[in-house]
Write a protein that binds this DNA or RNA. Structure first.
Lengths: 140, 140
DNA sequence: GCCTTTATTGAAAATGATTTTCAATTACAG
DNA sequence: CTGTAATTGAAAATCATTTTCAATAAAGGC
């Protein structure tokens, strides 16, 4: 049970072990699908019926800070828009000034077919963004 | 003025040309940064002060359908969580059943350095996700 | 140009997700 | 066991997005 190791990590950063945290950790640690806070809430409440949604938010935040869970991108969530380029291109964004530059990702095809073979998935689409500092912002 | 071409594309799909749409198109077409709906609203209102936020949402939706604008991922937005893997890994998600599989992206380093050289950016981080159908879901 | 039709609009209300507030509870150090 | 500070859930507040609806205005036919 990896759950214990997650709880130990929480504890080692000064957190107390509570039933609520245990329930959220058990749900996240055992899921192989991305879950929204409400989905976590519904699942975790079967273990601890007194659990509140607010605690789910707070616990997910802690688990993310510890690197035990990660955010998953689902296109409809993203509410920032930029003009599109010609053809399929990817984005490179400056973390400081927000400038966006497009680049092509021709060399990704090899990666996709390798991953497809290794996993048995039929790969349909992808999402790639790079983040960094543009030339101007590097010198400031 | 590429704006006219965007407006022509809107019109060719049966849309009427209005001041509100013109204002939103001008803002989006001329920005090299990703903008949230409220940011678009603030900027476009300087051209058409009667513009409503609802119309911004509706126009962005149309522009996205036409492929004239694209969504930009900013990590804070994403509200679906998954347990993290060991080390830096990337995600492959089944579009049908939601299953998530991790894969390593060792071969991405070459791409990053090429893009860094071409653009002058110092690349700090990246976000890559693949989407497809897992073996089971392909046969259903 | 002038109707007429119908898409489009903005305001307001409704919805939904997330955050804040706060008093009661509870983990755990001593 | 006890004291105390972290944690909790409920309720309220906030914020983003969607829906509703009556008024407006674009564009096609005359």
């Amino acid at each position: 049970m990896n759950t214990e190791s997650w709880l130990a990590q929480l504890q080692s950063t000064g957190c107390r072990l509570t039933g609520a945290r245990r329930a959220v950790v058990e749900v996240m640690e055992s899921s192989d699908r991305a879950l929204t806070p409400v989905e976590v809430f519904d699942a975790a409440r079967q273990r601890d019926p007194r659990l509140g949604l607010v605690t789910v938010y707070r616990t997910l935040e802690k688990l993310e800070q510890l690197g035990l869970i990660q955010r998953v991108h689902q296109s409809r969530d993203c509410q920032a828009f930029l003009k599109a380029g010609i053809g399929h291109q990817h984005l490179l964004l400056c973390e400081r000034c927000g400038r966006a530059v497009l680049f092509d990702g021709d060399d990704l095809e090899a990666l996709f077919s390798r991953v497809g073979e290794q996993t048995g998935f039929a790969i349909k689409s992808h999402w790639l963004q790079l983040y960094g500092l543009c030339r101007e912002c590097q010198t400031k």
